[in-house]
Design a protein around this nucleic acid. Structure first.
Lengths: 250, 250
DNA sequence: TTCAAACGTTGCGCTGTCGCAAATTACTTA
DNA sequence: TAAGTAATTTGCGACAGCGCAACGTTTGAA
């Protein structure tokens, strides 16, 4: 999907507040996505006409923890990580959101403010709607609510899994699991394995696995020597997924 | 067990917990609880007449991870902990549920099976309904859905907080936070402080804070010497909550 | 081309926490 | 009351992973 339909229009815009309305969004953008898949053409058209589309550079924040939840979002393309920041400034990544999912749906869980910060991990294209439309979407569009709550359920499960992992596994296993999850969500097949399809640093991985960038670096170096992974700056390729699976289950 | 049965004489349940036959349930049981607070007397009556009531001994499981989600529950009295069990048999407590909350609401998050096991931490009284009634409740009863999703939102927030804590805090701080949360949820004022109002072992606390019973024991012993807590077997009293707050934020 | 900033690697010492083991105390049941 | 079981405490050794520090590498801007 990267680079099709809606891309190429807007230039470098200010990450502050600028919103660009794209010429005309195509129905096919949404019609195959779970929350909208049961809708007919006209309904999707109506939804798209209410949407604002915007591009985010890698590292830009889509919304911030604690600020009033005035819009909800659909990640069309790219990758977003949801982070929380501790009083001491440490970042912890709660989960990753792949393209095709809703985010910032505070209203669905009865919140008036976003409970976490969403940061584009790669360049991303995001649709958004005013939160005021939420109830209308739920009421008018068949399957929207159901699919939304499935998404929330999955995220609850994911976070729960993180808790269990952090409680019971060693760093090496957590990193292995994190990599496996990343390649399953955004893996791109390359000659020597599966590459994570967005730039990711040792620091990012450490925030995802509750460790330090140093330890992640050491782990990856060791794996590279064994031929399990290959990595350049900000790029990681998993060459032997099965070996990681084995490692992660020790 | 179908229909209008209001006693706990259903037979397809597993554990050895004794069952108590209740007299006709009173509307006041539910009318002040968030999911039902907007309903009138007749509606609450109708809901109660569909409910099955049951008592669980401490340690008995209300439902188990992976089994088909055929009922949803309301914890009337007592305290339930939600745990996940790893392949290697270790238990990790995901969250605690105080009286007055729904649990086992898999349907709300689009699941067909319970995603975790619920264990009564203290003797508990639980109402339940067949999951088939879920959609009816959502459709017929004003505020039921909204309040349910608030509950889910809060739990998501809670689990997220656990992740952040486990990622950034030392054992001592995690235990302090766990105790503070427990006394805020089920604290009972006693002469020398606030006691956690259900039996809780070092092992339980360790499963809640991702550590070992030994370490918890050491931490509590140290605190007891400093007069912050007092503990007997299965009983913990926090004498100086403020000191714990300070400790937890180092 | 130069330079600075960001990212990554690696060695070393330290320590928080675990794991094991053994003893003690507190309940339960016969 | 005694025996048995569950919960707790405590000491000690081991080590995974952290923190620090120094250095290497890549990138992009001037």
């Amino acid at each position: 999907m990267r680079g099709t339909a809606i891309c190429g229009t807007n230039s470098n815009m200010d990450t502050a507040a600028a919103r660009t309305v794209f010429p005309r969004l195509d129905e096919s953008l949404l019609s195959h996505l779970p929350p909208f898949s049961k809708l007919d053409r006209q309904q999707v058209r109506a939804i798209l006409d209410l949407a604002v589309s915007r591009r985010y550079d890698a590292g830009a924040s889509v919304f911030e923890e604690g600020s009033p939840a005035d819009r909800f979002y659909m990640l069309l393309d790219g990758y977003v990580r949801v982070v929380r920041i501790t009083p001491t400034g440490e970042q912890v990544t709660a989960l990753h959101i792949p393209a095709g999912q809703l985010l910032g749906i505070a209203k669905a869980i009865g919140k008036e403010a976003y409970p976490a910060t969403a940061i584009a991990a790669a360049e991303s294209i995001v649709l958004s709607w005013p939160m005021g439309l939420w109830d209308k979407f739920v009421a008018d569009y068949d399957g929207f609510a159901t699919e939304t709550y499935k998404t929330i359920g999955n995220r609850l499960g994911e976070v729960n899994t993180r808790v269990v992992e952090m409680a019971t596994q060693q760093v090496e296993q957590r990193v292995a699991n994190a990599l496996l999850r990343l390649i399953s969500q955004t893996g791109r097949k390359v000659s020597n394995g599966i590459e994570i399809d967005f730039p990711i640093t040792r620091q990012d991985l450490s925030e995802l696995t509750a460790t330090t960038l140093h330890t992640v670096s050491r782990v990856l170096s060791a794996w590279e020597k064994q031929g399990l992974v290959q990595s350049k700056r900000k790029r990681i390729t998993v060459c032997d997924p099965h070996a990681l699976v084995v490692l992660s289950q020790v």
